[in-house]
Write a protein that binds this DNA or RNA. Structure first.
Lengths: 185, 185
DNA sequence: AATCCGTCTGACCGATCGGTCAGACCCTGA
DNA sequence: TCAGGGTCTGACCGATCGGTCAGACGGATT
């Protein structure tokens, strides 16, 4: 019955997931059809839908690890204020954005739409708390504007620089974050 | 024959253009169908395609003024270097982004795709020169990374804050730009 | 009255989308 | 040898996309 052995069967599931990650990162979620993914894998569209209930399930499985890390960052942010919140948010989000560059690239411009889906129910509130942390929990409009510039700028930059090594991207992003954020009064 | 009189006929052309601007800014270019625009105007989809050759022509006419200002900024940038280039690019682009917030919002995430279209032939090169100017014409990777964070952050922030008055958004953006850019060595 | 033309529309087109389904194929255990 | 189940696929579905076209309508010109 149960055999803990490694399966010799072709791991189509994983191949589809990997191909979808690659295609989504280039042409976005809406801009990539199941046909595209199937072609990249070398199977039929029906096979993709055999391994994944629907297109949204594919996206959810792809985003799950990134969302888990985002939730962990949100937890670390609880109870912090001012400069401490800015530092934790900056270091944590740069880390996350660099590590999950592909995942960030795939929701370029589709972020508001995809947030509606049940799989991303919490992400909306988390990103609001993240902006507040970047603003040092200040409610001054200029602080919130600076926070959004930093947040969106990091995301877009990570999505753009897919190929350069982490060791080069991370410190440069951290430097610009520390410069750009409005100092707490 | 020729009468310079004001036409009493309904200016459907302008109405379609205005409705398209509003819809595109919310749901993006690809995400807005000609049917959507027609419904917002209160006419048929065929009427939209009577006044505009195709969907791309609608986009071109909508983007033309923003692109003209972008080209003017590019011309002012020619021959500048270092801190001067940073200042001109910063002030000029913030101005442009604030004024044409709707136009920027509509190409959220679709920027790379839409650049392929012939109407935006030069924009690709202009935006590369703009990034170089933000970097103070330095080729250090950290300077270019900071430049992209600023450029993308401004664009996304303007697209997000559609409703707040210009007088509030502009100075806050200018402040974060001047802070964030890497000082020229 | 007849004509003409700018404006507008419903019906239709081929393509593509996400998704379904019956059945083919093959390996395994009885 | 046969039955069962996991894997895979071609054919198909309804919906929607951008775009086309023949013709209806109405006001101005002759």
């Amino acid at each position: 019955m149960l055999e803990g052995m490694a399966r010799a069967v072709p791991e189509t599931h994983g191949e589809i997931l990997a191909a979808a990650a690659r295609r989504f990162a280039v042409t976005g979620y809406k801009g990539t059809s199941l046909q595209d993914i199937a072609r990249a894998v070398g199977c039929s569209k029906a096979t993709v839908l055999y391994h994944f209930a629907n297109k949204e399930a594919l996206l959810s499985e792809l985003m799950a690890p990134a969302i888990a890390v985002l939730e962990a960052l949100d937890a670390r942010l609880a109870g912090t204020t001012g400069a401490e919140a800015q530092e934790i948010a900056g270091e944590g989000f740069v880390d996350l954005a660099v590590r999950f560059r592909r995942q960030i690239a795939l929701l370029r411009g589709e972020f508001p739409d995809l947030l509606q889906q049940p799989a991303f129910a919490h992400v909306q509130q988390i990103s609001e708390r993240l902006i507040a942390a970047f603003a040092g929990n200040s409610d001054r409009p200029s602080a919130r504007i600076a926070a959004l510039v930093v947040l969106a700028g990091i995301a877009e930059t990570c999505a753009e620089f897919i190929d350069i090594p982490d060791e080069e991207l991370r410190p440069a992003l951290l430097a610009v974050v520390r410069r750009a954020l409005e100092p707490v009064t």
